[in-house]
């Protein structure tokens, strides 16, 4: 029986495996699975740092600092980086920390920055003003993080004020010389924003000379851009660096997290889901984690089956050679 099973599995066309992957990942789209996401310290640290910046800005408004999101991701890794970007941007908008986005490696980056904001706005459209003071305690609790924005801005809370809350610097082909220039002189490299408006004229950019005025740089990436920041920019600019990356790259980033060269780390969809939990939203990260569950269990099952089949075959070969 077992012999037959393993022999069939060994001969199995790989397309059947593909089909089972497709089915396994599709199930949670039809049958939602309730999840409890555990927030890890790497993610909490980043959240706390952004909250700290808010407090610092309130204490010293003349010297207000911004958060800079470096969009080093593109369509091929949007599955992981989009939810990370969305959660961090949502957090900044909720508490009112001005943030800028730019890209030095991915030409599509600034366009994605806009799409992410559109997606936040679409999500907000589904929330009514009354919901913030609703009788339903669960709903109130769910909207508590966003209520901070509602309390601050009143009826206009759905409008993202370009130039005050957020600016998109755009994309530049960038080598290291240019990136190092931007530490102290941003406008030599970015005279305009991505639509061609003079960058220095925006209210939130008035106090920003370069990376030195970015309290936190969040590198969201699917490529090996971490070292560029750690080696050439942050030691000189004194900004904190946080790293939101695809799952593949996360293990390689841990040494820098340990040495505090990066102060926060979001690893793939899992990191995004944790951050979404902290900012009280359920977007692509947390929804995706439902499918991740089954996908992981399925991969583990495949590894076990593959190894059983391998052990069976090895035993059989040994028995055959003894004969």
């Amino acid at each position: 029986m077992a012999a037959n099973f393993f022999e069939i599995m060994e001969r199995l066309d790989r397309r059947w495996i593909y089909l089972t992957v497709f089915v396994a990942l599709s199930i949670p789209f039809f049958i939602p699975i309730p999840l409890r996401i555990e927030v890890m310290p790497e993610c909490k640290d980043l959240h706390e740092r952004i909250e700290e910046i808010k407090q610092q800005n309130e204490k010293d408004p003349d010297n207000a600092k911004i958060v800079l999101i470096s969009i080093s991701w593109s369509a091929n890794v949007q599955a992981e980086c989009w939810p990370q970007h969305e959660a961090i941007a949502e957090h900044c908008l909720q508490i009112g920390v001005p943030f800028a986005a730019f890209s030095f490696i991915s030409p599509e980056g600034p366009q994605f920055g806009e799409y992410v904001l559109d997606s936040i706005k679409r999500r907000w459209e589904g929330i009514k003003d009354e919901d913030f003071n609703s009788d339903d305690e669960e709903l109130r609790e769910k909207l508590a993080p966003l209520k901070r924005r509602y309390d601050r801005m009143g009826k206009n809370w759905r409008e993202i004020q370009y130039g005050v809350e957020y600016v998109n610097w755009g994309y530049k082909y960038m080598d290291l010389a240019a990136l190092m220039t931007m530490i102290s002189d941003l406008y030599g490299i970015f005279p305009e924003d991505y639509k061609g408006a003079p960058l220095q004229d925006f209210p939130m950019m008035k106090q920003v000379k370069g990376f030195v005025d970015c309290a936190l740089i969040v590198e969201i990436t699917g490529s090996g851009t971490l070292l560029t920041w750690v080696m050439y920019v942050t030691p000189q600019s004194g900004s904190d660096l946080a790293f939101a990356c695809t799952g593949v790259m996360a293990p390689e980033a841990y040494p820098y997290f340990k040495s505090k060269q990066i102060i926060g780390l979001l690893s793939g969809m899992d990191g995004a889901a944790q951050y979404e939990k902290l900012v009280g939203i359920k977007a692509r990260g947390r929804k995706g984690m439902e499918s991740q569950n089954l996908a992981h269990l399925w991969v583990i099952l495949m590894v076990i089956l593959g190894n059983l089949s391998f052990l069976y075959k090895r035993k059989k070969d040994r028995d055959d050679s003894k004969k």
Binding site: R14, I17, Y18, T20, V21, F22, L25, S74, A75, N76, V77, Q78, A79, A295, W298, V299, M302, V303, L305, G306, N307, F310, L311
Partner: peptide
């Protein structure tokens, strides 16, 4: 452009599943 790019990379999910079965052996 975005769906094409994203989908080409999503094929890797199928391959890693197949690799988990065929290549990841003790």
């Amino acid at each position: 452009r975005i769906p094409l790019d994203a989908t080409i990379f999503s094929l890797l999910a199928y391959y890693i599943a197949s690799a988990a079965y065929r290549a990841f052996r003790i």
